[in-house]
């Protein structure tokens, strides 16, 4: 690095001035060690709080109890027990809800982001609805669609639609003036400009919307089950909670969060494959 010129310089046999940039210890810890550390601190605190009787076991079970119950639930799931049936129902609600949210959200997003009509006439209503507490619509969906899976799908889709609309609309506005002019000079039609330029340009924002939607769809499905009954995982949680079976509630939530995580990672995977040119900054720690 120091030897740039070929001509011998008087400093050629002087010592290198290579120096090491200082990195604080806390920033230099490898990720897996850091994660394990936080996990152990968490479990340790939990163990401490429960074993000294600081809170009642009904409110907070010990880590061991929770682990025991997790194994029980895991066995039930793996052997195709009733919990698997319930989980499958919730997974279906999430999949249908997400698919519906993507279809509606993307369509509305294009309408709002691409047409002046959509922006002027549709967007204000969307904003108005978006500011409402959407779970409050749950009883309505039950009244309209019954206690079956449909009312949960509807609530899940309802919650997840808005971030997708906003992401799509924002994405369509992301193309800069130069790109627009360039397409004009090439004589591109509106459809061509949309498909070949605006949509690809907006994909990062669209995927951000999808990720927020993926989180919302899970919340929607479970809330729907809490408020509208049915046979899903949310119902298992509600029953366990009403029986003060806290370890069960904990382990059910943990398994449920795995489903949510899987959906999120699926969207992220799709994003990495499709939007290969876009380097994500948030959520990555490698600079």
């Amino acid at each position: 690095m120091t030897d740039v010129s070929n001509a011998p310089s008087p400093a050629d046999n002087a010592e290198d001035t290579v120096w090491v940039q200082e990195v604080a210890f806390i920033d230099s810890v490898p990720r897996w060690i850091a994660m394990t550390f936080v996990f152990l601190v968490f479990i340790g605190t939990w163990q401490f709080v429960t074993s000294f009787g600081l809170v009642s076991p009904i409110i907070l079970p010990t880590p061991a109890e929770t682990l025991k119950d997790m194994i029980f639930v895991g066995q039930n799931l793996l052997t195709g027990g009733y919990m698997l049936t319930a989980l499958w129902i919730t997974i279906l609600e999430v999949i249908y809800g997400f698919a519906l949210a993507i279809a509606i959200g993307f369509t509305l997003g294009v309408l709002v982001g691409e047409t002046a009509f959509g922006e002027k006439a549709v967007m204000p209503y969307l904003v108005a609805i978006d500011t409402m507490p959407k779970v409050a619509f749950a009883p309505l969906f039950v009244a309209w669609l019954g206690f079956g899976i449909e009312s949960k799908v509807a609530l899940a889709a309802f919650i997840a639609t808005f971030p997708i609309v906003v992401g799509t609309a924002a994405g369509l506005h992301a193309a800069d003036e130069n790109a627009r002019m360039l397409f004009k000079t090439m004589g591109a039609s509106r459809m061509q400009t949309l498909i070949k330029m605006k949509l690809p340009t907006g994909l990062p924002q669209i995927f951000t919307g999808l990720k927020i939607g993926a989180v919302g769809v899970m919340a929607g499905a479970i809330t729907g089950e809490f408020l509208g009954g049915g046979k899903g995982f949310g119902e298992l949680i509600r029953v366990a909670a009403s029986q003060l079976n806290t370890p069960r509630v904990f382990s059910l939530i943990l398994y449920l969060s795995l489903v949510g995580l899987a959906l999120y990672l699926l969207v992220q995977f799709a994003q990495r494959k499709i939007v290969f040119w876009h380097k994500e900054r948030v959520g990555s720690y490698d600079g």
Binding site: D176, N178, A179, M181, L182, K184, T185, M186, G187, M197, P200, T201, V275, F276, W277, H278
Partner: peptide, 17 residues
């Protein structure tokens, strides 16, 4: 816009995909 016109702007505006 016309076919017989070629245009170039300050930014290269190449599409990353």
């Amino acid at each position: 816009p016309r076919r017989d016109i070629g245009m170039m702007f300050q930014q290269a505006t190449l599409f990353p995909w």
